[in-house]
């Protein structure tokens, strides 16, 4: 467009290989953004918050469009949609909390496109799949001009909209470990409606029990109560060594409320988020416990 501002119009690229994608990302001029499901990016473009010069659509890179499993765990390609995750029986059986969290993203329509890698890279503190991934011990597989690296999901975001990705880097896949025996995960969020809202608070819990039902390991994560998703070791410790009975769950709720340091905004007040963080963690822990016990 021959506009007086002289801005070059947006370029769309659809590379077929990871290498091409990384090259484009590393060498393109101006602002370059990865397009996965586009459910954040297109909204940001439409509302004027993002004006990229280049878009790299990763949905033509076949390894990024697959869910695979080796002995060590699952690899969820960064272009895999939430709907495809829900349709993968093995993944659903192993990590129902993660799959359910991904299935909370937006509507049926949004789930047909949205990816958990995009959810992570968008770096919103309220992203639904992120606390679930954190609780499950997921890592992001990052690919860049210098090769690969893996970063724990809880360390991936540095603040709202900020990630550890460097120029030329993208997320290739999300890696989930094989689920240890007697382990269950769950994620719950609070929204004022039943659907189509962004989490006011979210809580992810993953517990491993011994044969007597006593918790030997736990991971507790909280969303929308801090600039990034929190992995809270203190909250996890309230569960370890217990059978997740009422006193333990009360202690968990108290620890989560204490860990929360939210803000007041259009979606909820500070005090509401602090209280509900505890309520949700407690409820999620019960689901995770029952899953670990094989009850559901």
């Amino acid at each position: 467009m021959n506009v007086i501002s002289g801005r070059i119009p947006l370029q769309y690229h659809a590379p077929a290989t990871l290498k091409d994608a990384v090259n484009l990302l590393a060498n393109s001029k101006g602002k370059t953004q990865i397009l996965a499901g586009g459910t954040d990016l297109l909204v940001r473009m439409r509302t004027g918050f993002s004006e990229p010069d280049n878009i790299i659509d990763v949905k033509h890179i076949s390894p990024m469009c697959k869910i695979s499993r080796d002995g060590k765990g699952f690899s969820i390609g960064a272009a895999v949609s939430s709907a495809e995750m829900s349709e993968n029986a093995a993944l659903l059986k192993a990590w129902p909390g993660v799959v359910e969290a991904a299935a909370l993203i937006g509507s049926t329509q949004v789930q047909g496109r949205a990816t958990i890698a995009g959810n992570l890279c968008n770096a919103s503190p309220a992203a639904d799949s992120v606390p679930a991934m954190v609780a499950a011990g997921a890592r992001a597989l990052i690919r860049g001009p210098k090769g690969k690296r893996k970063v724990a999901v809880e360390k991936f975001c540095k603040g709202p909209g900020k990630t550890v990705l460097k120029k030329g880097e993208l997320v290739e896949a999300i890696l989930l470990p094989e689920k240890p025996a007697r382990t269950g995960d769950a994620y719950l969020r609070f929204i004022p409606r039943t659907e189509m809202d962004i989490a006011v608070v979210g809580a992810g819990v993953c517990v491993t029990l011994d044969s007597k039902g006593v918790c030997t390991a736990a991971r507790v994560s909280l969303g929308a109560i801090a600039p990034t998703v929190l992995l809270d070791a203190r909250a996890a410790r309230t569960l370890v060594g217990t059978s997740l009975d009422d006193p333990a769950l009360d202690a968990l709720a108290a620890a989560c409320s204490a860990a929360a340091r939210p803000i007041d905004d259009k979606r909820g007040t500070k005090e509401f988020r602090i209280h509900v963080a505890g309520v949700l963690a407690r409820r999620a822990a019960i689901i995770a416990r029952d899953r670990a016990l094989g009850k559901s």
Partner: peptide
């Protein structure tokens, strides 16, 4: 912006919002 579904279409068998997909795609 993906919130109302009035633009729903089916792409390769999957329901999506056509407002959240580029024409180029």
């Amino acid at each position: 912006t993906g919130d109302c579904g009035a633009c729903s279409v089916i792409v390769d068998g999957r329901l999506v919002c056509s407002c959240l997909m580029l024409g180029a795609e």
